[in-house]
Design a protein around this nucleic acid. Structure first.
Length: 650
DNA sequence: TCAATAGTTGACATT
DNA sequence: GAATGTCAACTATTG
């Protein structure tokens, strides 16, 4: 039996503390130990990742690399710029590897990738060791104890969790690490296909991270933002296990906060400091272990006995919700991330429905513009110029900093979907995926389904007001003043509804409320848009639409949804793309090559004012016009060809 | 079987 | 200002 030569493959576990997989790797007593990261083109080209989350990732990697070097001056995090699916067979041979060890990933894409890597290892005679560690409970085990069903409520998580047993106590960080062996790379690099590339909009220079195998200085260094060609990051939040553990220490030191935390009582209007822990991005990248967090909190809670808050509102309750969403995703796979073919997601004929690849049954990442005015509402929502200061402040904070309070996310998600614009939750989830530094696919998808009342939650008549809700938390409107500075001098009486302020006052306070937000100044005066919709009216339309869709009662996997005949069950004038009795699968609107630069709807910027169906006189066509449609041509099923194909010449 | 009740985080009026 | 009830009425669980 040769001495173990081990690759430890870091992915969503960028830490040394409490890593069951890392512990398993070290128990092998390796002769050579290679801590590596492979540069997965899925992240570079396919998932939506903005500069803020990129920077957070790079900071987590740098911090981890330094921590590794502190334990062994010969070692570091070796970043190898190639897709794992093509790199590993060559690397196994080159470094004479005997074991590959990594933390389990239950994300839909993660499972697919790891399945392929396991197969490659088997062929190369390399033993693969996988340990769960990303969640409180192993998500697959949680599903198993939930009668092999996706975990759809917190009670189910608690019952299934109790059957599994106690949440495991955290493992200390290793005190030393074995040397790596030789790190020569004599093989040729295989570049991934750089097309399709959803992230061109995130860059202001060429993406050159695949120009070398081991980086510009051949030292396996963490790439710079420049190497990836990214636009500058703007988030104030810094990544890394070191920062995370310090933040956790500070939270735990405040025992009252830790033990009596109740999420619904934390203010979404608070900033500097925010009302919640802001540990979610560290949990996402694995810079902080959720079990470390859980037990540090639980030990304080135990001291407080009956004075402590309880799940689901307590701090540990938040971690249970995370496990719930991971369990739902582990059971449902790719279908969890979409309505189409999802047995647990209600079918609502939202505006701007997703394009479906009928071969794979998966969404393509593009969508249909069934209504030009809905497209305008969506654009204005994304850009933070809805004319509702609370919504705009949050969307601008999100884009700038990559993090907003959980209840702020509720407010903007409700507004986009069932409580305002009646736009598909998948559109909103895509924007969050792009901008959040803590974007966790399972949690993001689950929360969007929750807020849109398509799964997990059903009380659609409980609708967040963009005026009354923030008023409850902050009468002064400080968050608005910070992120919507044009309203900085408005009296608090009008801060959440500035269109009601008298014109003389608007002039006095230096900002006119007019237009649609495309212009920002009128002479010396600033401009802020008028509200893009009548909230009270739109709320009624949405609630009626939801009530109707609930009565029809379809789920995403209903045959009538799959083949498009669901339209027979809706009246033509029901809210959403409901006309006719037959149509394309899902809520797609007409047969059309979605790559085509054709359109059948008037220019969105000049659309009629909001109102039900106002623009849908005459034949209905899909508008997939230019910039308004996401340029993602491949569905998830084509990922494999994406990484194994040679880079095409331009 | 079915009524009662609970469900992390609504708005508004009244006490 | 905090607590409670009503609005209109959802699903899933429980006894």
């Amino acid at each position: 039996m040769p001495s173990p030569r081990v690759i430890y493959w870091f992915r969503t576990d960028l830490r040394l503390h409490d890593s069951p997989a890392l512990q398993a790797a070290l128990e092998l007593k390796p002769e050579c130990f290679y801590p590596i990261w492979t540069w997965d083109p899925h992240y570079v080209y396919h998932a939506r990742v903005g500069p803020n989350r990129w920077q957070f990732l790079l900071e987590c990697q740098s911090d981890l690399s330094k921590s590794i070097t502190k334990l062994n001056s010969k070692s570091k995090l070796f970043l190898i710029r190639e897709a794992p699916q093509t790199l590993f067979p060559k690397l196994f041979k080159e470094w004479n590897i005997t074991h590959l060890v990594f933390e389990k990933d239950t994300d839909a894409y993660g499972r697919e990738r790891d399945g392929k890597v396991k197969e490659l290892a088997r062929k190369a005679g390399v033993e693969v060791i996988i340990r769960p560690g990303r969640t409180l409970y192993d998500s697959d085990e949680l599903v198993k104890e939930n009668h092999n069903k996706p975990t759809m409520s917190i009670t189910q998580v608690q019952v299934a969790g109790a059957k599994i047993g106690d949440i495991v106590r955290p493992i200390p960080a290793p005190k030393s690490l074995p040397d790596p062996g030789p790190t020569t790379l004599s093989f040729a690099q295989q570049k991934p296909a750089s097309s399709p590339d959803i992230n061109t909009i995130q860059r202001d220079a060429e993406e050159t991270s695949y120009n070398t195998l081991a980086g510009l200085n051949n030292d396996f260094a963490v790439p710079t933002m420049e190497e990836i060609g990214l636009k500058p990051a703007t988030s104030p939040h810094r990544g890394g296990e070191t920062v995370a553990l310090k933040m956790l220490d500070d939270i735990i030191a405040n025992e009252d906060y830790t033990a009596t935390f109740e999420k619904p009582k934390t203010a979404p209007t608070a900033f500097e400091p925010q009302a919640t822990t802001l540990l979610s991005p560290y949990l996402h990248f694995g810079a902080l272990s959720c079990r470390e967090f859980y037990w540090r909190v639980q030990d304080v809670v135990s001291k407080y006995k009956d004075k402590a808050s309880q799940p689901p509102t307590s701090l540990t309750g938040q971690l249970l919700f995370r496990d719930m969403y991971f369990g739902a995703q582990a059971a449902l796979g790719y279908a969890f991330g979409q309505t189409y073919n999802n047995p647990r997601c209600r079918f609502i004929p939202w505006h701007l429905p997703s394009e479906i690849d009928t071969n794979s049954g998966l969404i393509t990442g593009r969508y249909f513009v069934d209504s030009a005015e809905a497209e305008v509402l969506f654009k204005r929502w994304k850009e933070g110029r809805t004319g509702f200061p609370w919504i705009d402040a949050l969307m601008r904070q999100l884009k700038l900093e990559g993090w907003i309070h959980h209840l702020g996310r509720h407010a903007v998600a409700c507004f986009l979907t069932r409580g305002g614009c009646y736009v598909d939750w998948e559109r909103g989830a895509e924007v969050f995926e792009e901008w959040l530094i803590d974007h966790e696919a399972a949690c993001n998808i689950g929360n969007w389904q929750w807020l849109s009342c398509t799964a997990f939650f059903a009380q659609f008549y409980r609708c967040y007001s963009p005026i009354a809700f923030p008023q409850k938390w902050d009468k002064e409107g400080d968050l608005v003043r910070k992120y919507v500075p044009e309203l900085e001098h408005f009296d608090k009486k009008y801060i959440y509804e500035p269109w009601k302020a008298p014109i003389v006052d608007q002039k006095k306070w230096g900002c006119l409320v007019k237009g649609d937000g495309t212009e920002t100044a009128d002479g010396k005066l600033k401009m802020y848009p008028k509200p893009m919709l009548d909230f009270a009216k739109q709320r009624e339309i949405c609630i009626q639409g939801m009530k109707n869709a609930y009565q029809v009662g379809l789920y995403g996997n209903d045959p009538k949804v799959l083949d498009g005949t669901w339209r027979r069950l809706f009246k033509d004038d029901a809210e959403g793309p409901t006309e006719g009795s037959k149509g394309l699968p899902g809520a797609q609107v007409t047969h059309e090559n979605a790559n085509a630069e054709t359109d059948g709807v008037e220019d969105g910027e000049h659309a009629a004012p909001p109102g039900p169906k106002s623009e849908r006189k005459g034949p209905k066509k899909a508008a997939n016009k230019g910039k308004s449609v996401h340029k993602r041509e491949a569905s998830q099923t084509t990922l494999d060809s994406m990484v194994t194909r040679k880079k095409k010449k331009d």
